[in-house]
Amino acid sequence: MKSDTIPKAFSRRMARFFRSDAFSAIGLLAPSLAGFALFYLIPFGQSVLTSFQDRLGGSFTLSNYKELLLSSSFQKAASNTFSFTAVSVPILVAISLLLALLLNQRVFIRNWLRTAYVLPLVVPVASIVLVWQILFDWNGALNAVLQQFGLDRQDWMKSNWAGFVIVLVYVWKNIGYNVILFLAGLQNIPDQYYEIANLEGASSARKLFGITLTYLTPTTFLVVLMSVLNSFKVFRETYLVAGAYPHDSIYMMQHYMNNMFLSLDIQKVSSAAVLMALCIMVLVFVLFRTERMFRSYME
């Protein structure tokens, strides 16, 4: 009897399991999960391990991190990346917010304008590199203009101005993305809020700060997060405009990683990647936390 019930119960449970969501989910997730684990999770776990491993013996050590943090090129890359993000993200967010606000009002050919703002996002960086060079080269168009006004020309890409150029390129590239996000955010603000404000006779400024910007705050968090993440992609632009070893002021984390990669210094690359992942995680965590705090404050 007893020996009979157990398999029965087991098979019943099995049958239920086969029909359950969980079973289907395993089946559906299997391909994705397998590849994801193979190419992302497992090797990342490995590189975390590697980052703590001694170069020779494989014993646990923090020396990779120590070495990394003490390396001057890493410091330079990290501080450049940090300051670049700190400068470019506010600029980008401000400009795109402004554009979105303008675009959200009554304007002609709005759809065409939106297309125009988004277009830089889809234009391959490599296609446009040449234009940046034409503009910012030592013999470039910008210097030609400066010369005409009797000003000294600058070697834009090989001086501290390089950072400025990169910020410009970054803003050019990402403005459309943020405009889309802000526009979506703006359209999610219920019209009644404005109608009520109008009834109350609120000023435009009050409406802007009281309603628009306030209710846009969750979107802004998202925009900031995305802008920061996108700011890491600016390597592509810098690499294409200035090559693997650009001017000091635009030597970014990405250059560092790239060059470490090419020299096959896996330990260093791994530790740098782990550090970077940690920073991102902290950033995401902080942003989500503040957003949640903000939300509970709103309610």
Binding site: F39, I42, F44, L229, M253, A277, I280
Partner: peptide, 24 residues
């Protein structure tokens, strides 16, 4: 939990994901 892993990985800049990609 699993989805959080996907999400975090997605948020990682490619400089981070490049390392595991390369190793594999």
């Amino acid at each position: 939990g699993l989805f959080f892993l996907y999400l975090m990985t997605m948020l990682m800049p490619f400089q981070v994901t490049l390392v595991p990609n390369y190793l594999m």
